[in-house]
Amino acid sequence: MNRATSLPIDLPARAVIVSIACFWIGWIALMSLRAALLDFAEPSDLLVRRIVAALAGAALTLVFWRGLRFVRSDRPVRIALAALIGAIPATIAFACVNWFLFYGWHPPASLAADVARWGYVRVWRYAVIDTSVSWFFFFGGWAILYLFLRAAARSAAAEKASMQAQLRALRYQIHPHFLFNALNALADLVQTGRGDDADRMILDLSALLRRMLSEDDGAPDIPLADEVDLQRLYLALEARRFEHRLRVEIDLPDELADTPVPRLILQPLVENAVKYAVGGSHAVVTIRIAAEADARGLLLVVEDDGSARSDASSGFGIGLANVRDRLQVVYGDTARLVAGSRAGGGYRASIALPHG
Rank of each mutant, 00 (worst) to 15 (best):
L246T: 12
R247H: 13
V248T: 15
V248R: 04
V248F: 05
I250D: 13
D254F: 03
D254M: 05
D254G: 05
D254E: 15
D254T: 14
D254H: 10
E255H: 12
E255C: 06
L256Y: 08
A257G: 08
A257W: 07
A257Q: 12
T259Q: 11
T259Y: 09
P260D: 13
P262C: 05
P262T: 10
P262V: 10
R263T: 13
R263P: 05
R263I: 09
R263D: 13
L264N: 13
I265L: 10
L266T: 13
Q267F: 08
Q267W: 00
Q267C: 12
P268T: 10
L269I: 06
L269W: 04
V270M: 07
V270D: 12
V270E: 12
N272A: 03
N272W: 01
N272C: 03
A273C: 07
A273I: 09
K275T: 15
K275S: 11
Y276T: 01
Y276I: 02
A277D: 15
A277T: 12
V278L: 06
V278G: 05
G279T: 12
G280L: 03
S281M: 06
S281N: 14
H282E: 15
H282L: 11
A283C: 05
A283W: 03
V284G: 04
V285F: 06
V285M: 04
T286P: 00
T286K: 02
I287P: 01
R288D: 12
R288H: 11
A291V: 10
A291H: 06
E292N: 10
A293N: 08
A293T: 13
D294K: 02
D294T: 10
R296P: 00
R296H: 12
G297W: 04
G297S: 09
G297N: 11
L298F: 08
L299D: 14
L299G: 01
L300N: 11
L300M: 10
L300D: 14
V301F: 01
V301H: 07
V302C: 09
D305L: 06
D305V: 10
D305P: 05
S307H: 11
A308M: 09
A308G: 07
R309P: 07
R309H: 12
R309C: 07
S310P: 00
D311P: 00
D311I: 08
A312C: 03
S313Q: 13
S313V: 09
S313A: 15
S313N: 14
S314Y: 04
G315T: 07
G315H: 05
G317S: 14
G319I: 02
L320H: 02
A321W: 01
A321S: 15
N322D: 08
N322Q: 04
V323Y: 04
R324S: 06
R324L: 01
R324F: 02
R324C: 01
D325M: 04
D325C: 00
L327N: 04
Q328V: 00
Q328P: 00
V329M: 01
V329T: 10
V329E: 13
V330G: 00
G332V: 08
D333I: 02
D333S: 13
D333W: 00
D333K: 06
T334L: 08
T334M: 06
T334A: 14
A335E: 12
R336H: 09
L337Y: 05
A339I: 02
A339M: 02
A339T: 03
S341Q: 14
